[in-house]
């Protein structure tokens, strides 16, 4: 476990295999909530928080529950239930503690359960940091950090997209391309730009 490994995880999750632009996880919020910057930022922060926490929880469950009892084939069911419960819990806690924050984040939190990025990262962590059902050295920290990096990548893509779409409001887009088609075409060009990071080597 050294700094270089963490750096590799960060660069590859944020730029090379960006969660939205190259892995296509979390496209629904990317298209639906990217019309303005402020809600886009709120959504991204909520998603980052949930991804980090759920990477932690799913790692613990996999390592200390599924592996010892030899029921790793149940991981999909376990993970999705845990994530759904966790999101509900966070929503309840936020509503109780801070109504202002609930107004800012609340509606997006409910949507996160079905955000494929969250489950996708959990599954990816298990695939990458467990070899034959044994945790590799530092696997817990790698999982946490990968969760965080994917969240950063998500935030970056959301902010770029919402910035572009805010300006797009004043453009004369052909009628049949308005709204979603043009958003996809912009995302395609952004993805093309992110492909430039593909040659990165350490």
């Amino acid at each position: 476990m050294n700094i270089a490994q963490f750096l590799t995880i960060f660069i590859s999750s944020v730029f090379i295999y960006n969660v939205i632009l190259s892995r296509f996880l979390g496209l629904c919020p990317f298209l639906a909530i990217s019309k303005e910057s402020k809600p886009a930022l709120a959504m991204s922060l909520a998603v980052t928080f949930v991804i980090v926490m759920s990477s932690m929880i799913t790692w613990v469950i996999y390592r200390f529950l599924l592996v010892p009892f030899n029921i790793t084939y149940l991981r999909t069911i376990f993970f999705i239930l845990v994530i759904a419960t966790f999101v509900q819990l966070v929503e309840m806690v936020i509503r109780k503690i801070s109504p202002a924050m609930y107004r800012f984040f609340g509606i997006y939190l409910a949507l996160i359960t079905t955000n494929c990025a969250v489950l996708g990262v959990a599954v990816m962590n298990i695939d990458m940091f467990f070899v034959k059902n044994k945790a590799v050295a530092g696997s817990f920290y790698f999982s946490l950090f990968q969760g965080f990096s994917v969240g950063v990548g998500f935030t970056l893509a959301m902010l770029l997209m919402s910035g572009i779409r805010e300006r797009l409001e004043f453009c004369d887009v052909p009628e049949s391309l308005r709204n979603f088609p043009i958003a996809f075409i912009i995302a395609s060009i952004m993805s093309l730009a992110f492909m430039g990071f593909n040659g990165f080597r350490f």
Binding site: S22, F24, P181, F184, I185, L192
Partner: peptide, 12 residues
């Protein structure tokens, strides 16, 4: 074949 092409095709 790249991710970018997928987004372009579905947009068009």
């Amino acid at each position: 074949s790249m991710p970018s092409g997928a987004l372009l095709i579905i947009g068009l």
